[in-house]
Simulated scan of single mutants.
Amino acid sequence: MVTYVITGGTGKTGKTLALQLLQNGNKVRVVCRDAARAAELKQKGAEVFAGDNLDEKFLNNVFMGADAVYVVLPIDMQAVDYTATQVAHATAIKNAVVNQGIKFVVTLSSVGAHLDKGTGVILGLHKLEELFNEIPNINVRHLRATYFMENTLTQIQAIKNKGVMAGPENGHQKFALVAAKDISQVAYNNLHALDFKGKSVQYVLGERDLSYNEIAEVYGRAIGNPNLKYYQVGKDDFFSTMTQMGASRNAASKFYEFTQLINQGKVPGFYSRTKENSTPTSIEEFANSVFKSAFEGQ
């Protein structure tokens, strides 16, 4: 029996991945910050470890005797230095992997992680890849996923309060979006097979590239508002909204920096779409299931 460790085990990709591994008879250890959120996983047979990813002693205990690890860095919107916090988490996880002699690692990275500057929230994932690529005699697969469809759920409040979708992205600029469940499936395929060797990258790009104007049109139809529009907001309005939501100034600036890469049309240049790296869930399917349910409060 293979033993897997899933960091971010209650998150958008980790929980679905853990459930699928459990369903197929594997031993699964879930790392999370709040054990209560992992109740379903525990009921399904997962071992739940609640603790801090920065605590190497904690991680060494969790990783002991494991065969493979799925690495997801936590999002800390209150971090004084967003990138430094990402690197600290990545370093602690890397050290535990090395100490426990784990031979297979799948990381959740991002499109744009090949760049070493100017990528905002993605920069820490570039450093994550570097850290794990430094480990000798280990097999690492970096999943360079694109913008989560689930990120658009934050638009629900704007739609209900103001009747529009809004954000710092240019409404006409297309970029790739992917459903979290599709990332989980790609991670599962890799972890179930454990047939990847050395250090490698796999892109996970969703069904097609879309603009926010197109997303608004699809979402409007799904929620019975065919006239729903998207409006681009300025930097000051974006920062004001983010800080009102509890984000630090640094975290807000990192997110804004990445949106500017979208606005400059650079993001599609970070990847080459193929049949193999295009995943099945369309924005229409997501709109009529996840988005509609969340909008209706189900």
Rank of each mutant, 00 (worst) to 15 (best):
T83D: 12
V105I: 11
I102R: 01
H89V: 05
T83W: 00
S110W: 05
V87T: 12
I93A: 01
Q78R: 13
V97K: 00
N99D: 13
H114T: 09
Q86E: 15
V97G: 00
Q78S: 15
K117D: 14
A90P: 04
I102T: 04
F104H: 13
F104G: 00
S109P: 01
V111N: 04
I75P: 01
H89P: 00
M77I: 15
A113W: 02
A96K: 00
T85M: 09
V97Q: 02
A92Q: 09
Q100I: 03
A84W: 08
Q100Y: 02
I75T: 15
I75A: 13
T91S: 11
F104S: 04
I102G: 00
V106R: 02
D81C: 04
A96C: 09
A92H: 03
A92F: 02
K94S: 11
V105D: 01
T107H: 06
H89K: 01
L108F: 02
K117V: 06
A88V: 10
D116Y: 11
L115C: 08
A96F: 07
A113Q: 07
S110A: 15
M77W: 09
V105L: 02
V106C: 02
L115F: 09
A113E: 06
Q78E: 14
T83H: 04
N99C: 08
V105M: 01
A113P: 04
T107E: 08
L108C: 06
G118F: 12
V87M: 07
I75N: 14
I75M: 14
I93D: 01
D76E: 13
T83K: 08
V98R: 09
A88P: 07
V87L: 12
M77H: 12
D76L: 09
Y82H: 11
I93F: 03
H114E: 15
T91N: 11
T91K: 14
V106N: 03
K103S: 07
Q86W: 02
T107C: 11
Q86C: 11
Q86G: 13
S110G: 08
Q100V: 08
G118V: 03
I102A: 01
V98S: 09
H89R: 02
